[in-house]
């Protein structure tokens, strides 16, 4: 019985790979994330390809789209970390200049008054159940929109730190940036991201 069952599972699971729409959207998300992190199309393609192959080889492990997705992204994450470590200072200097210096100043002026204290309307509010929504597609769409709205350098370093979970010394070493430059970038990324999530999810939701 177990044999027959595992055979039929394998077939069902293989069908995940034949859902073209799902696979293409998954691949597109992986490529987008990989390109953002390694800044090289060919390296990104290779990493995604290897993650996909490894998933296919372990097909009996997942029976739902979500499980497959978690698996391939976990593999991709490790591959990207390897590439980032190997390709030290791959980041061109020009990337460091990238990002919206001016609009940062404008954001700081919007959020804080001339004495450096929060503007009344901008004070961070309590996020009721910050975990609420993590299961919903709507939340993650909002999160993606907020992440995409950041300058590329910000979202890249933010996700390197918070999703790939590299420590700051390692990021500075791999990317040849100074600690203070990285700290400032992470601060601005977090400042913008929290603002965007608060406006579009944690507050906005209540009003609907």
């Amino acid at each position: 019985m177990t044999q027959a069952l595992s055979r039929s599972n394998e077939q069902t699971n293989a069908q995940l790979f034949h859902d073209t729409e799902f696979m293409e959207s998954l691949r597109a998300q992986m490529i987008k994330f990989a390109v953002l992190q390694v800044r090289n199309d060919a390296l990104a393609e290779d990493a995604v390809q290897e993650a996909m192959i490894s998933a296919y080889q372990n097909i009996e492990r997942f029976n739902r789209q979500a499980a497959l997705k978690t698996w391939v992204f976990a593999i991709l994450k490790n591959k990207l970390i390897d590439i980032l470590r190997k390709e030290k200072r791959y980041t061109s200097v020009s990337l460091l200049e990238e990002g919206a210096g001016r609009s940062d100043e404008a954001l700081l002026e919007d959020l804080f008054n001339e004495k450096g204290h929060w503007q009344k309307d901008e004070r961070p509010k309590k996020w009721d159940e910050p975990d609420h929504g993590l299961e919903s597609q709507h939340f993650w769409r909002t999160f993606d929109v907020c992440l995409d709205a950041l300058p590329a350098k910000y979202s890249r370093f933010f996700m390197m730190r918070e999703f790939l979970e590299l420590d700051t010394n390692e990021i500075c070493d791999n990317e040849d940036v100074t600690v203070s430059n990285l700290n400032t970038t992470l601060f601005r990324a977090r400042l913008r991201l929290r603002e965007c999530l608060e406006d579009n999810w944690f507050q906005g939701e209540k009003n609907t």
Binding site: Q65, A66, K69, T70, F73, P130, D131, L134, E135, Q137, W140, F143, F158, M159, E162, F163, E165, R190, L193, R194, L197
Partner: peptide, 13 residues
């Protein structure tokens, strides 16, 4: 934010 980011992908869709 940290907690949310670490779950990026996992619960997406």
């Amino acid at each position: 934010l940290r907690k949310i980011s670490q779950q990026y992908v996992n619960h997406k869709e």
